[in-house]
Write a protein that binds this DNA or RNA. Structure first.
Lengths: 234, 234
DNA sequence: CGATTGCTTGATACCTCTCAACCCAGGTGG
DNA sequence: CCACCTGGGTTGAGAGGTATCAAGCAATCG
C-alpha cells in the first residue's frame, strides 16, 4: 500500500525516528524561491498512513510543507480524547512554532510526503527577507483564522451542521466540484468535528436518505443538492 | 455607572460611531517604545459596557490594545448563536487582521478603555522594525495557540471540565490567587464555553455543593479546592 | 478461508438544552 | 416608604440530541 514511499510502515518500524535521523542531514534552508514561496531546499520525507510526524511536546526543530497526501494536527487529553485541529493538504505549512516545543501532534492521514525545513535557519533568514517573514506571518494569521472558525463550529453547531460544513470544506479542495473522495476515516472526521464515529455515520446516512448526497462508497461522496448543504452552513 | 468614561452609554448613543469619528483624528502610529512594546501614540477610546467596538465585516482600519476593562471578540451564526473566541484584558492586542475586514466582532464586556492604532502605519513600520514585526508575529502565534486550545475544550470537554478550565484561566489573570471577580455575565461565559447559561449556573452550583468553590456573590468566586479544579483540566 | 478493520445500524442511557417559574438586587415612580 | 418593574441569576421538569454499548456487514488481508 505504501511501497512507493521511502519510509514505509514495513521497512522502517518507526518513521518518526527515521525522520529524526534525516533531520541531522537536513540542509539549512538558505534560499528563497522566485515565486514568493519557500524554495524546496529542505529534506523530503515520506510517512506511511497513520504514522506520527512529530508529537506534542517534541522539540520543534523543524517545520513542514505538505507535498502530497494529507496530514492531521491534533491535541489529546490525558484519557485519550482527541481533537483534530486541521487537515493539511499539498502546499500547506504545518508545525511552525513560536516556542520551543510542538503544541500539537502531527500524523499522516494517508501516505504522504512532506518537505522539512529547519526552523532556526528560516528565522534568521526571515529577519532579513521581508517576503519570507510576510509568508510566515500569513501562515500564523491563517492558522488563527481557521482555528477561530473551527471554534464556532465546535461550540455552536449541531452534528448536521458540522458534517455539512466539513463536506463543503472538503469540496473546496476537490478537483471535481460534484464529488469528493475522503482521505480520512470516520474517526478522523469525528475527532475533527467533536463528534463520535457513530454520529458522523448516522448523519451522513441521513443526508443520503434526504437526497443531499450520495455515498457510492464510504470514502466517496457525491453532491446531489449542494444548496441544501450551504443552507446548513450559517 | 460609566461616568468616568469619555464615551458613556448616555452621552453618546452610539459609541461605535463616536469611535469612528475619533478614527479620523487618529495619529499614525509612528514610534516604537523602548520596552519592545508599541508606544502609546494611538488614540485612547472608551466604551461602555456591552458597546460594540467593531463588527464582523467592518473595514479593519484599526487594531487595539486594552488599557483597562475587558473586551470580548466573537462570531455569530445567522440565527444569533454566538461563540466568544476570547476575552481580552489589559495589555492584550485585538483586532489585528491580515485581510481587509474584521473576521470577528469586538464588544466591551465591562466599561473599558483601549488604544487604537492605525493598521497601515504599523504595517509600514513593521517592515523596517524587526522588534515590532516580531511582536505582531507573536500576537498571531498566540492567537493561533489560544484558539487551538479553545478548540480542544469546545470539541472534547464536558460542561464540568469546561467550567473548571474557565475558572483556572480566570485565576491566572487574578491578583488574588484565592479568588476571582468575574467581569462577564453568565451569558458571556456560556458563549465562551459553548454551553447555555443554565448549564453554566448549574455547574457552578455543583462545584459549590462539592466544596470546590464558594460563591459569595454571582460574580465572585473563591477557590476552596484548586487541586480538584486542576484535576478536571487534562 | 478466517481474521481483521472500518463502517453502519439499532437500542438505550445520559448529558445538556429548552421552557418555565422563581429569586434577588437595584432602580423608578407614586 | 413602598409597590412595581427590570435584568441577571438560579433552579426544576421534561425533551431532545448525541454518546454509549452492542450487533452485524462488507471489504481487505494474511
Amino acid at each position: 500500500m505504501s511501497t512507493q514511499f521511502a519510509v514505509s510502515s514495513e521497512r522502517a518500524p518507526s518513521p518518526a525516528i527515521a525522520a529524526r535521523g534525516a533531520w541531522n542531514a537536513l540542509p539549512t534552508v538558505g534560499r528563497y524561491g522566485p515565486e514568493g514561496e519557500l524554495s524546496a531546499t529542505g529534506a523530503v520525507l515520506s510517512f506511511a498512513h497513520d504514522r506520527e510526524i512529530y508529537g506534542e511536546g517534541d522539540e520543534a526543530e523543524l517545520f513542514f510543507k505538505v507535498v502530497s497526501g494529507v496530514v492531521r494536527t491534533c491535541k489529546f487529553l490525558s484519557d485519550g480524547r482527541r481533537q483534530i485541529e486541521a487537515f493539511h493538504v499539498a502546499g500547506d505549512l504545518f508545525g511552525f512554532e513560536a516556542v520551543e516545543d510542538y503544541r500539537l501532534s502531527a500524523e499522516a492521514v494517508s501516505d504522504c510526503t512532506v518537505i522539512a525545513y529547519r526552523r532556526k535557519g528560516v528565522e534568521r533568514l526571515a529577519a532579513e527577507n521581508e517576503a519570507l517573514s510576510r509568508q510566515l506571518f500569513a501562515y500564523a494569521m491563517r492558522g488563527m483564522t481557521r482555528a477561530q472558525d473551527h471554534s464556532l463550529l465546535l461550540g455552536r453547531k449541531s452534528a448536521l451542521e458540522k458534517v455539512a460544513a466539513f463536506l463543503l470544506e472538503c469540496a473546496e479542495h476537490s478537483s471535481d466540484i460534484r464529488s469528493i473522495s475522503l482521505a480520512m476515516s470516520r474517526q478522523d472526521i469525528a475527532d475533527y468535528l467533536g463528534l463520535t464515529i457513530e454520529t458522523v455515520s448516522r448523519t451522513l446516512s441521513q443526508l443520503e436518505r434526504d437526497g443531499v448526497i450520495a455515498l457510492p462508497s464510504a470514502r466517496e461522496i457525491r453532491f446531489r443538492n449542494p444548496t441544501a448543504l450551504r443552507d446548513l452552513n450559517d
